[in-house]
Nucleic acid binder design. Structure first.
Lengths: 345, 345
DNA sequence: ATGAAAGCGCTAACAA
DNA sequence: TTGTTAGCGCTTTCAT
């Protein structure tokens, strides 16, 4: 299995032409006389020649590879980003180098620095503060970030967390809820905005919010955080969760604790992960368009690599997906959801 | 941003030594006199030198990258494989090149062939028949496959689909079910084995099986397939689904159709995807240890790259995870699950 | 312990 | 249209 694959020189020899000719032919840089073209084709076919991308990259300085660093590939939000990014990359003949940074938090920076050396550009999701991410500038490679970047001159894509949260709260209010809690994830860069959105909406209605933290963006964390909220002295009648995973965990535990959902407690999440739909009650959520974000990020990056400037922030519109976890099916509530109609499903 | 990073020559000049010395230093190939080492360190530090992995790869012929081709990154089964593979790769300082082949089915082969040129080895999940995958031999790179490979001399890892299916059926039998259906996915390479396992178990009990096909390994497909099974003339009292996604979709639709789960119909899936636990009823499933499969596959591959021979098939033990979708909570059934106790949760 | 020199497989001027 | 030639940044004998 140590078959040395044929080099450009082998082809040149076999076809009786120079290596430069072969190179030009491979890259379609030029036109050729019929006989030469025929010989070239024959030799290439016969030898099974495929040009070595490494050698090519060394000279051109381009690898046609994009580095993608995600926090946790198992979180469907990031999975979707990868899916979207991969789609666009494939269309343009780029390859994806993936790193799941959660697997080695301490080495996040090293990992990304190493990654940067093998790619033309990077798409990065990070938990680091922008202030402490100045080193990304020294990557000397185009980077696209998620969430509006304020301290870094990189283009970015995100969705309006504030608005999304506001919408979620508004929906809950419309459903007649008054005691609303927020189960957040403090370490996230979007947590603050989401909290702000919910808070603002409630304040307009003269209501207060009760804030909890899940300590992780996972279903397990949602489970763990549940009892303190649901069994506390003043049980909320609705909770906005930082993301769908937390919401799913919360719902499971809440029911185990004897709550009826959504009658006793309504739940909203963020991200619209595929499985919220299959939980029961099906999870109402804010669709942040993760997959589209991945596509957009990749598009921005490839665009830059094509020489076009872009340091903008592309913001996607959040969409409310109303499902069962917030809609009072029987008894209970007050108004029937006035905003449920015509909403994207 | 067109900062040309320093080359080995810059370092050599700055340190007043030869490039060979710098190279040896970078690779820790040799020991050095104190003064040289000091100058080297200073120069490298001062210039911020990082050796170019491409140039290195050109000579050594090693890229320290592994290609991973998955059918659909959004299927948690594959997500888990990626997670596991990534973990091991990171530990050994390898990078992952990911391709989601579903994004471009027609180009699967091209994609993988291109991938092969940039990596030291590949881990491939494919829907192709082994018989028509002989081209993989011409990759001239070590490959690890999933599922026992019979026609290809590649090592592989998988779990015992036959046994898993047999176990699932046995569990259903123990729960008192008699009319059992199998909702499969004919295009998968494991479908046949799973069907065999279920069939064998039922035959031992003198029972027949009713077979359906979901046409896709997704929740949506499960939803679509549901009504024909549940509203047919002879509704089964339990169904074994090809995977958890199909099972989840099936359950959602079944309930929409007015079935009580698990009282009217019990459901089992395969894969133990994270969200089965958060569905309701929580999904009973066969844990095939996807993440472990990813780890193992990567371990096998790196092992081969270390020069050790390995053409074996590593088979993981399936485990039954009993949850609510098969346990008769009230009324109904016959025996209470005798095998539910002591089972991994 | 250190250095000189010959490439790895390819592209990119520049000549012809 | 085709060929010559000089490297890309690095590793690796082989000398010293």
């Amino acid at each position: 299995m140590k078959t040395n694959s044929p080099t450009i020189r082998d082809v040149a020899a076999a076809a009786g032409v120079s290596v430069a000719t072969v190179s030009k032919f491979m890259n379609g840089t030029q036109r050729f006389s019929a006989p030469v073209e025929a010989k070239l084709k024959a030799a290439i076919e016969q030898l099974g020649y495929r040009s070595n991308p490494l050698a090519r990259s060394m000279i051109t300085g381009k690898t046609r590879a994009i580095g993608l660093a995600v926090l946790d590939i198992r979180n469907p939000h990031f999975t979707n980003i990868v899916k979207g990014a991969n789609r666009i990359a494939l269309q343009q003949d780029y390859t994806l180098l993936l790193v799941d940074t959660e697997e080695n938090q301490a080495r996040e920076r090293q990992l990304i620095e190493a990654l940067a050396q093998r790619v033309d550009g990077l798409i990065i999701t990070s938990r680091m503060q922008e202030e402490s991410s100045q080193w990304m500038l020294e990557l000397n490679k185009p980077v696209v970030l998620f969430g509006r970047s304020r301290h870094l001159p990189f283009p970015s894509v995100g969705s309006d967390s504030y608005l999304a949260a506001y919408m979620a709260a508004r929906h809950l209010l419309n459903e007649g809820h008054r005691r609303i809690a927020y189960l957040g994830f403090g370490q996230s860069r979007w947590n603050a905005e989401r909290l702000r959105g919910v808070t603002a909406c409630l304040e307009e209605a003269g209501l207060q919010i009760e804030v909890h933290d899940a300590h992780a963006p996972s279903a397990q964390a949602g489970e763990r955080a549940c009892s303190a909220i649901v069994l506390g002295p003043r049980r909320p009648d609705a909770v906005v969760c930082y993301n769908d995973l937390i919401a799913l965990g919360f719902m499971k535990e809440a029911r185990a604790l004897g709550c009826r959902l959504p009658e006793d407690v309504s739940v909203v999440g963020f991200d619209n992960v595929p499985y919220g739909e299959y939980a029961s009650p099906a999870l109402t959520t804010m669709d942040l368009q993760s997959e589209r974000m991945g596509e957009l990020a990749m598009q921005k990056l490839l665009n830059i690599l094509d020489g076009n400037a872009d340091d903008g922030y592309a913001m996607l519109e959040p969409r409310l997906i109303v499902r069962e976890s917030t809609t009072r099916r029987e008894a209970g509530g007050s108004t029937s959801a006035p905003d449920a109609a015509g909403v994207a499903r």
